[in-house]
Design a protein around this nucleic acid. Structure first.
Length: 445
RNA sequence: GUGGUUGUAGCUCAGUUGGUUAGAGCACCGGUUUGUGGUACCGGGGGUCGGGGGUUCAAGUCCCCUCAAUCACCCCA
């Protein structure tokens, strides 16, 4: 039994892990609801073509795909977006816009597992479709921030860096980079922080081969552009280029909205963020942990052409994803995970089998009333039972011994402050409800 | 996919230059004679030392392969 282990890159969730998982999902779900997003879900297993058709064959290497018993080529979903596009596409005509949708689901990719990078992971996805203006991007960035703030994280713990692929396009066009080479150059930009100057120059040379651009010169101006951290600096550069100046109007709208929503402190301009994915078409952003680890917590952006490419309607769209693994790691290191307590409200101590029948009747009534109740299945002695109540994390112990049953009462004992009081069994449900709400003082003499 | 490190009970680890039935602490279960708990004492279950092969009279200890975890690179929907 023990030699059949779980598959590499898959996690088992013991109750304490699952409790943490639920906490993450709850915070995310609450934040999304406050923004008017509605939850959706799609099949975990999809036809392989859904992911290969529009995304390129290279992706197949990382797909968790196989042939099912009916000879169909299928794949576990590596992301939600293709399914989202299909579902929205099927009903888009009749749906009120904008569409605010979120999902929390398990995704899969067949890769060599590493820390923070597994074959199965859960991800929050929030998407806003049908609105092309920057107000939608601002809404998503605000939601992204709230999904982190909801855990008790502060502006000091993370930062959402905002960038803009469209601005990059206009900038590179003004630098005379041929249109078909721009994506390649952005690939170099993506590595700006991680690679050595020599490697960057080599990469730039490779991208610009066959063009008239000077790799070294372009690399220098790209670096300078990527170093911009404020709207003012951008405006200075944009004065020379009408297309860029026009784009800055969008930037102002974005930053204004974010400011009015109260999230200025959470965001910063950082043009080194371009996101690896080629499908992003406008603003892009990534949330990072502030500090040495600098874990990436979330990422997203605008993808106005993707839904149509995936076979859906021509809908502007933007969205972001947030994974459970890094967020959990971060909360753990910041000590922000709530202490695990899944114990029952009441542990009923049945002393002697004579009391059992009466106790079970009350237990059933308490459970019908909505309380979480456990009790000893086997007869046990007092010290043992109260120890059990303590061990499983019960809030209160209820004593059902021969004495109590004879008198028609039960003894309530707080496991935390060790006070106790008796209540009549006829009054048990309202009395215990009061105890849970106000503590022992509700029944103490 | 490439390279490095690690792998002994649920957890944290000991296991001497290879040598008798593999240990400790914590946790778990039971008990310390009859209804008041985080302490103490006693007892118990649980490991084919990640798996396989090899060297040897003898391997947890040496060699090879493999699996897994982890780190770096690659990649990242």
């Amino acid at each position: 039994m023990a030699d059949i282990r779980s598959l590499p890159g898959f996690r088992e969730f013991y109750p304490e892990d699952r409790a943490i998982q639920n906490h993450l999902f709850t915070v995310w779900r609450q934040a999304c609801r406050r923004y008017g997003f509605r939850e959706w879900e799609s099949p975990v297993l999809e036809p392989l073509e859904l992911f290969t058709e529009k995304s390129g064959e290279e992706i197949v290497k990382q797909l968790f795909n196989f042939e099912d018993k009916g000879g169909r080529q299928v794949s576990l979903r590596p992301e939600m977006t293709p399914s989202l596009a299909r579902m929205v596409g099927a009903r888009a005509n009749g749906m009120p816009k904008p569409i605010r949708w979120f999902s929390i689901g398990e995704n899969f990719r067949y890769e060599k597992p590493q820390k923070g990078r597994l074959r199965s992971f859960y991800q929050l996805n929030a998407d806003l479709l049908g609105e092309a203006s920057a107000t939608a991007d601002a809404e998503l960035i605000a939601l992204c921030a709230d999904c982190l703030l909801g855990f008790g994280l502060t502006q000091k713990d993370f930062s959402i860096r905002i960038s803009d692929r469209q601005l990059w396009f206009k900038f590179l066009e003004s630098e005379k980079v041929p249109a078909e080479k721009i994506t390649g150059v952005l690939g170099v930009v993506d590595k700006l922080e991680r690679s050595s100057p020599g490697d960057l120059l080599e990469a730039m040379k490779a991208v610009l081969a066959g063009t008239e651009c000077d790799p070294a010169k372009l690399l220098a101006s790209v670096k300078a552009f990527a170093a911009i951290r404020s709207l003012n600096e951008l405006e200075v550069i944009a004065q020379k280029d009408a297309a860029m100046a026009a784009r800055l109007v969008e930037w102002k709208q974005l930053l204004d909205s974010i400011k009015a929503l109260g999230f200025s402190e959470c965001v910063s301009i950082d043009l080194t963020i371009v996101r690896g994915l080629a499908y992003y078409t406008g603003f892009v952003f990534e949330a990072f942990e502030v500090g040495a680890e600098a874990r990436a917590l979330a990422g997203g952006g605008r993808y106005d052409t993707l839904v149509k490419k995936l076979g859906g309607p021509d809908l502007p769209a933007a969205g972001f994803g947030m994974g459970d693994v890094t967020v959990r790691d971060l909360l753990e290191s910041k000590n922000l995970l709530p202490k695990y307590s899944d114990g029952p409200n009441f542990y009923v101590m049945i002393l002697g089998d004579d009391a059992r029948h009466v106790a079970l009747e009350d237990i059933a009534a308490l459970r019908r009333a909505g309380f979480r109740v456990e009790y000893n299945l086997r007869d046990g002695k007092f010290p043992k039972l109260i120890q059990s109540a303590e061990t499983i994390g019960a809030q209160y112990a209820l004593v059902y011994g021969g004495e109590e049953v004879a008198k028609g009462i039960t003894k309530v004992r707080s496991l935390t402050d060790r006070t106790e009081a008796t209540i009549p069994r006829t009054d048990i449900i309202p009395a215990l409800r009061a105890v849970l709400e106000e503590g022992m003082r509700a029944i103490l003499p």
